[in-house]
Amino acid sequence: MTEIRNEARGNAFFLDLSAALRQRGDLLQRLSAVATLIALVIAFSMVNGTFLSTNNAMTILLQTAAIGLLGIGMTVVIITGGIDLSVGSVLALAGVTAGLLVKAGLPVSIGFAGGLIVGTLCGLVNGLVVTKLKIAPFIATLGMMLIARGIALQITGASPVSGLGDEFGRLGNGALFRIIAMQPNGFPRVVFAGIPYPAILLIVVAVAIAYLLHRRTTGRHVYAVGSNEEAARLSGVAVDRTKLFAYALSGFMAGLAGIVLMSRLVTAQPSEGVMSELDAIAAAVIGGASLMGGVGTISGTMIGAFIIGILRNGLNMGGVSAFIQQIVIGFVVIGAVWVDQLRHRKGS
C-alpha cells in the first residue's frame, strides 16, 4: 500500500518536474528571442557608431510601429488558427480613405476615423467569409488582399494623394516631450527628438491587446478556439463570434497602421504596404506564435517585430542592399521556427 502511495507521489513529482521544465522551455524560447535582439543591437552598434544614438532608437521605434500594429492583429488571428493575408492591402485602403476624406475638406479626425472604420469593415468581411461561407482563411483573406488593393488603386487612380496639410502629418511625425531650443542665429535646434506618437500608440495598443488576451473572457476564447475548435463549441464558446472579433481586430489594426504610415508620409499612397502582411506574419512567428493555432503572445510578437525592425534599420545603416535584407530576414524566419520546433519535439 505504502509502495503504491510512494509510486503515486513519485509520479506526481515527475509530472511537476516535467511541467516546470516545460515552463522553463517557454522561458528559454522567450529569452533566446530577447538574446537575439540584444546580439543584433550589439553587432550593429559595433559596425556603426550612430546606431545606438537616441535619435536612431526613435527611428527604429517609428519604423517598427507599423509592423508591430499589423503583427498584433495578425497574432490574434493566428492564435484562433487562422491567417490574415489582407492586412497590407487593407492598410493601403484605409490610409487612402483617410487621405481622400481629408482632401475632400473633412477634418483630419473624421478622415482618420473613416480609415479605421474601413479597415474594421474589411476585417469583418474577412470574418464573415471565414465563418459563414466557411471558406479557408488563407483563401478568404487572399481574396480581400486583391479586392482592397484594387479598390485603393481604383479610387485614387493609382496616384498618391498629396497636399493634405500639416495637421494630417501630426500623428506620424509628431512626438511627445520633443525639446527644441532656439539658437542665437534664429534657427531651431532639436535637443531631444522626443517619443514619436506612433511608438506611443504601439505600446498602448500592445498593452491593451495583451490585457484582452490574458485577462478577459474574449481572449481566453481566442486561445480555446485555436486550440480545439470543436471542444470550444461544445463548451459553449461562441466560436463564430470569436473568429469574427479576431478578423475585425486585425482589420482595425491594419487601418491604424495605414493612417500612421500615410500620416508619416503626409501623402496617401495606394501602393503602400505591399508584402507587409508577410512582415506581420514573420513577426508573430518569430515571437513564437504557431500557425496551427492556440499559441502566441503579444510580447513575443513585439520582440519579433523589433527583430525585423532592427535588422532592417541596421542593415540599412550598414549600406546593405534591400535585396540582401530580404534574404537575411528570410533566413531569420526559417531559423526562428526551426528553433521553436526543436523545443516542441523535445517537450513531447
Binding site: R220, E230, V295
Partner: peptide, 25 residues
C-alpha cells in the same frame, strides 16, 4: 473536448469563466 493548450482550470471553466467585479478573468 479539451483545449490542449489551456491548463486544467481554464478547461474546467471554459465557456463559463469566473469573473471579477470588473469583468476580468
Amino acid at each position: 473536448a479539451l483545449a490542449d493548450h489551456l491548463d486544467a482550470p481554464a478547461n474546467l471553466f471554459l465557456g463559463r469563466e469566473l469573473k471579477t467585479r470588473f469583468g476580468n478573468l
